[in-house]
């Protein structure tokens, strides 16, 4: 709300609003709030995929259940990777907010990218192993629901990784100007949101499946 403009540092981590003119602040507010709204529509999408999963999980139609193919160590590794990448992106945000050099931002961004890649690599590996064992989404509703839920999250992470690369390119070309900063904040919201969805996925899909 407009009245809070006298606390610029508290408005959004990763952004120093103190030295921006009012018209720019409105644009920043709109951009960030708008992205939040978009994330909420994405949250509804994921929530419904969870609901579909919840109703389909028992429809195994004679095929192996998704949980039968899970390994707790793999799930744990992927969780650790994504959570850590959320933390390292937090470091990116702090660097941006406190006007660190491009090098520091680039470093933390690269670490985030590597952790994201580690996560995706684990997930792709798991999926390929399942396909190899004949546990495919075409065999049952439960498997379809599993692969689409986790796969949609994985596609979002992939999009996030492409976005990280683009941010690296933008930073190289334009430095850290206003638009690049706004994009970094939005990428941050997106990245943290994906880790949040993963918390739900490992709870409802993996741990539930392993509990049997």
């Amino acid at each position: 709300m407009p009245g809070s403009m006298n606390e610029p540092e508290l408005l959004h981590a990763g952004l120093n609003l103190g030295n921006h003119p009012p018209a720019m602040r409105q644009q920043l507010e709109c951009s960030i709030f708008g992205f939040w709204v978009f994330l909420m529509s994405d949250a509804i999408l994921f929530a419904l995929l969870f609901a579909v999963f919840g109703t389909a999980i028992q429809n195994t139609a004679g095929a192996p259940s998704p949980g039968s193919a899970f390994k707790i160590s793999a799930a744990g590794r992927e969780t650790f990777a994504l959570l850590s990448s959320s933390f390292t992106y937090g470091m990116v945000s702090i660097c941006l907010k406190h006007d660190a050099s491009r090098r520091w931002v680039g470093l933390w961004l690269a670490i985030t990218f590597c952790l994201g890649a580690w996560f995706l690599d684990g997930e792709v590996h798991d999926f390929l192993k399942m396909f190899h064992d004949g546990v495919t989404p075409q065999r049952s509703a439960a498997l379809s629901a599993f692969f689409v839920l986790v796969g949609t999250h994985g596609l979002h992470v992939t999009a996030g990784m492409v976005w990280i690369l683009l941010m690296g390119a933008q930073m190289a070309v334009y430095g850290i100007d206003e638009r690049v900063k706004i994009n970094f904040i939005r990428l941050g919201l997106f990245w943290h949101f994906l880790d949040l969805v993963w918390v739900a996925i490992f709870s409802v899909v993996y741990l539930r499946g392993l509990l049997g």
């Binding site: 195994t60 095929a63 075409q138 049952s140 509703a141 629901a145």
Partner: peptide, 17 residues
């Protein structure tokens, strides 16, 4: 997904609903 990838969310067979 059902039509292009042969999945079974809403089909008659294989547990679709």
């Amino acid at each position: 997904a059902d039509r292009y990838f042969g999945m079974h969310f809403f089909t008659n067979a294989n547990g679709g609903n």
